[in-house]
Simulated scan of single mutants.
Amino acid sequence: MNEKIEVKPRKALEVMKPYSPGKPIWEVQSEYGLQHVIKLASNENPLGPSPKAIEAIQIALKDLHRYPDNQSQLLKKTIADYYDLHADQVIVTNGGDELITLVAEAFLDAGDEIIVPGPTFSEYEFGAQLMGAKTIVVPLNDAFQYDAEAIVAAVTDRTKIIYLCSPNNPTGTYVAQKDLKYILDTIPKRIMVMLDTAYSHYVSEELYSDGMEFVRAGYPLIVLKTFSKIYGLAGIRVGYGAAPQKIIQSILQVKEPFNVNALAQTAAASAIGDEEHVLRSQALVAKERERMYASFDQLGIKYTQSMTNFVLAELGPESESIYMRLMAKGIIVRHGKTWGLPLHLRISIGMPEENDQFIAALSEILGSV
């Protein structure tokens, strides 16, 4: 048909940029004609999914003709029991990304403001743009650490939500418990804080808090968690939020029915109790992260100490060229321009042999730059 299409999208779409994930393995294989590709780009668990989750999925397959539980009641109760919460303080979502969007839809009006750290995960700003709200960026300091006083100082009469990613993606740094408490105690109670703790299981610092004690204490805080990272369930998309019941109830008003599929619900309910898988995953990341640091030290590469399963490294003006040359060798990482860090690469922790191949390839590239 040749008729001119006159349907116009919302004005918000003029500034919105869809999320850009790391390249999938199949795409790099096709583009470069490679058989073997290592993906160190999306912060996935290299050990794979929780074995308990796999077992639960296999049992549930026979019931795929049934709609899933609209409210994910079994999973909500399992999560609530795990964190000593009430079930009405939990919402289950199609990955953490859906929760971010639902929070924006439930709480933001056009003209409202949100505060985010910079650099950080892009989906917080995406949700604000969707609702016509304005994003105020409070930069992390030179060491990519949070400045709690600067965050509080950025609050205005229009501030509605403060987003804190802790540990932060892409820097791996975190908000200390005392700083989180300072922010919560200082800002007006009309402002909600969303604490994204997708990588909390990898944190070893005693000064850290995943925010759950503040939820239990009734602060206007929603904690985001996910089964995509340490539990290895990224492929079936299941996340959740914990907050006071009043906040959860508001979010439920905009939630789509049957938003989390039945396999995701049953897998997550089993995975959360898979302590062996969690401990193995934590041990692998802690050991391999230190090995990556040592390799970077030998190569003279600056990096940020991380409390996550990835490391942000500064490669300088040649970083994009290095990124492309690594990909040509079958190693996918993330280039930092996504976050306004054109000198950096973000590297996910893989299996030991994958990390060895990455370091060997990087060493060869740096030797020829």
Rank of each mutant, 00 (worst) to 15 (best):
S209W: 12
F214M: 13
R237H: 14
Y199E: 07
S250V: 01
Y208C: 04
V215E: 08
T266G: 00
R216A: 14
D196R: 00
K229Y: 14
N261K: 03
V254S: 05
A264I: 07
V254C: 05
S209D: 09
S209E: 10
K246R: 13
A243Y: 02
G232H: 04
I230E: 12
I248N: 09
G218L: 14
E256T: 06
K255Y: 00
V260I: 03
I230W: 01
V238F: 03
Y199W: 11
V223E: 02
K246V: 12
E213R: 10
G218F: 13
L221M: 11
I248W: 09
F214Y: 15
S250Y: 03
S228K: 06
A198C: 14
S250Q: 14
G218R: 11
E206D: 13
D210E: 13
L224M: 03
A262Y: 12
N261V: 06
H201Q: 12
Q265W: 06
V215C: 04
L221S: 13
L233P: 11
K246M: 08
S204I: 09
K229I: 15
A242F: 03
S209Q: 08
S250G: 02
V238S: 12
H201P: 00
T197W: 01
I251A: 01
Q265I: 04
Y240H: 14
M212C: 03
A267L: 03
A217C: 07
I230S: 11
A267C: 10
N259A: 14
A217R: 13
P244H: 09
K246Y: 10
N259D: 14
G235W: 07
A234D: 10
A267H: 07
E256A: 13
V223D: 05
S228T: 02
S204H: 08
A262T: 10
D210N: 15
G241R: 11
Y199I: 06
A242D: 03
Y231I: 00
I236E: 07
A267I: 07
E256L: 09
G211Y: 07
I236H: 05
